[in-house]
Amino acid sequence: MTVRELSRLDNFSEIILPDPDREIIGGYVGDLLSWVMGRAESGNAWITIMSNVNVLAVATLADVSCVIIAEGVVLSEDVISVAKEKEINLISTSLPMFEASVKLSEALR
């Protein structure tokens, strides 16, 4: 499943998708950045409620396919513009992290 396909599911929406055809390989959920850095795998869709700019550095370094910002958390324009620059796919969902994970997992089956 590509990042664009995920963004079109119910309850998910695109924030920005500079690389929409990127394939999603599994997922990872977490808010502690070091934990995510150490454990998320390349291609994972990363579900988090963190919204600061450091999320983008971690997303780049961990090479995740997209960041899914859960619980309807809103990103600032600054963060979005840095993500654009770094070509990081950002998806928003109103779902809590658990439900978002379940949906993602079902969609990846």
Partner: peptide
């Protein structure tokens, strides 16, 4: 609150 301070920094550095 910024998502740091998990106490994983040095262990990750060793791990990787």
């Amino acid at each position: 609150s910024l998502g740091f301070g998990a106490g994983m920094g040095l262990p990750n550095m060793r791990k990787y």
